[in-house]
């Protein structure tokens, strides 16, 4: 996908952060916004764009050995798509135990119910962010999980 941003921030020259939409979600403003936010926090971002098939997602995570993987979805299918993606990634050989987080409007009711967020964590996500949780995400980015991975 094309990058619309020309980051002026000093970014980490080491490993990249993979940013991805889900297989059924075509929204991109969320991805543009998150790419900027990540770059501002010093991440070098590979933005896979919208409608990313599970296979492509896993392949990119395997070959790029990212320090962090960020999944974003707002179309209401994020819960189901997100579960499928993390299972595929955690089952794939050679992807290690890379930290993976997901966020956005993950259900058709907007924000996800707590039990469903628990399901995502149980399936292998390291954190789940609700719509509007960008401050918590910024805190997470400066926290131990992401720093240890870099």
């Amino acid at each position: 996908m094309r990058s619309i941003t020309q980051s002026t921030f000093p970014v980490d020259s080491g490993s990249v952060t993979v940013l991805s939409g889900t297989s059924s979600d075509s929204h991109t403003w969320n991805l543009v916004f998150l790419q900027l936010l990540l770059e501002e926090a010093g991440h070098r971002v590979v933005n896979l764009g919208p409608c990313v098939p599970d296979r492509l997602f896993v392949e990119e995570c395997r070959t790029r050995t990212p320090r962090l993987v960020v999944v974003s979805s707002v179309n209401g299918h994020g819960y189901g798509d997100g579960l499928r993606m993390i299972r595929a990634l955690r089952d794939a050989p050679g992807t290690g135990r890379v930290p993976v987080v997901i966020g956005g409007k993950l259900g058709v009711g907007g924000t996800l119910e707590d039990e469903r967020a628990e399901d995502l964590l149980a399936a292998g996500y390291d954190a789940v962010f609700a719509d509007g949780d960008t401050d918590a995400f910024t805190v997470y980015l400066s926290g131990p999980v992401v720093r240890a991975a870099s």
Binding site: M1, R2, S3, I4, T28, W29, L31, V32, N47, G49
Partner: peptide
């Protein structure tokens, strides 16, 4: 403007 699609000049 702001379109990520590879077939858009940007």
């Amino acid at each position: 403007p702001f379109c990520l699609h590879p077939d858009n000049a940007g």
